[in-house]
Computed example of a mutant assay.
Amino acid sequence: MAVTALYTQTGSYSAAVDRLGHSAAFAQTSGAGLLPRDGVIPSATSPLAVVPVSGMNLSVIAGQAMISGYIVSVDAAATVAIAAATTVARTDLVILRVRDIEAGDATSGASVEVVTGVSTATPATPARSLVLARVAVGASVSSITGANLTDTRVYTASAGGLVFLPGALASAPTVPMGQQVYDSVANKIGVNSGTGWSIWAPEDLTRVPIRYEAPMVGGTIAAVGSVVGISNGITIAAKPYAQVLVIDAAAFISTGGAAADVASISARMGGTDVKSVRGAAVGATIVLGMSMDLAANTAISAQLIASKVTGTTSAGFTGNSSLSWMHITAFPA
């Protein structure tokens, strides 16, 4: 066992020990040992993406990567050539590879290379390599197009950072407990809890109660059974999560009809009267309160309605807009 402190005065360090120092600044793997996570280091461009150029030539866009503790830089686009096609279809790999005499290689350095397959089976990946793309080389083809390329880049991040995941969370690589990854397919973030993924979406940050208020307009109610909207309709916005709607409404029904006339108010949600409250008589305020569930990704319209329940005259009476209200608070479920 070796215990090393970087960087002490008069200390002397091998390249391997120096790599341990900068590896600590990167996200780790979940395996044993001091192993930084291999992958492309994100940037504003599409780092180390493989794109067709012409014929059998491909270009690798400039970028950086962490490979087995080595930080590798491609400072300008690199061109590689796919070997001529034969009468047998095959799979090739475009890789970024590190060689190190200390690790048993004949030379030290890094390069962009092509691993030429012999069939459609994926060839083996050399040690200390990062696969950037898989190339489907058809029988007797003379050029490679974008349709023949499969982007296989994986990404790394700084320690405590967010690892970008090109695929779905279900295909997430093994990461240590507490590591966060971003699922670019579902636009969600997963955190390794040690026993599974704890998932949250960016919109979770906006999961706060939202208050809606329907504009009051009032209206005259004439014959028994007639209905008038005391408010204009409003729409409760759909959210990617379920909501609980708490409805608080009231309407002051002013006199105008006979004393025996009785009104009711209703909360009309999505075109259906979900709750009605009957008043004692005209000239009084009718209060309504209720709650209801609203499913995720569902919007619903809301309106306060008044109607004449009983009466013996045709004279109307009015829902007074200044003394009426309809408030709806949407709580995340």
Rank of each mutant, 00 (worst) to 15 (best):
S143L: 13
L6R: 07
L288C: 01
T255N: 08
T150H: 02
G161M: 05
S171R: 02
V17P: 04
P126Y: 00
V137A: 04
G21I: 08
D293S: 12
L58V: 14
M216D: 15
I210D: 14
A16I: 06
L35H: 09
D105H: 02
V114T: 12
S23G: 03
T150K: 11
L323Q: 13
L58G: 14
E102N: 12
V98M: 04
V40P: 14
L169A: 14
S43L: 11
A295F: 07
Y70Q: 13
V94K: 12
G55H: 08
V246C: 13
T255A: 12
P215G: 05
D151L: 01
W197N: 07
Q9G: 11
S14E: 07
V228E: 06
D75W: 10
Y155Q: 07
A16F: 05
G55D: 09
N297Y: 00
R278V: 08
I82M: 12
V51I: 08
S142G: 05
Q179R: 03
A139M: 12
V262C: 07
V137C: 11
L245E: 15
V228Q: 08
T29K: 11
E102Q: 09
R37H: 14
S111R: 03
V114D: 12
T220W: 07
P123C: 05
I253M: 14
V60H: 08
T329G: 07
V277T: 09
D38N: 15
A147R: 01
L304V: 04
A89I: 11
S140D: 02
A284N: 02
M290I: 02
V3K: 06
P240S: 13
A147S: 15
A172R: 03
V208I: 06
G271P: 00
A44S: 14
A103L: 15
N232L: 08
G229I: 06
K275T: 01
L48W: 06
S264F: 02
D38L: 09
A172V: 04
V224T: 11
L165V: 00
A223I: 10
Y241S: 11
D92Y: 06
R153D: 05
L323C: 06
V115H: 11
P240T: 13
V80F: 11
V80M: 14
G104L: 10
Y155P: 07
S291T: 00
A139H: 08
R128F: 08
I210L: 15
L96V: 00
A186V: 05
I41E: 10
A16P: 02
R211K: 12
S140M: 10
F252S: 02
G39E: 10
A299W: 13
I230Q: 03
E102L: 06
Q64I: 15
D183R: 13
V94E: 07
V154F: 01
Q64H: 15
F252E: 04
G69Q: 03
V51G: 04
L149H: 01
A110S: 05
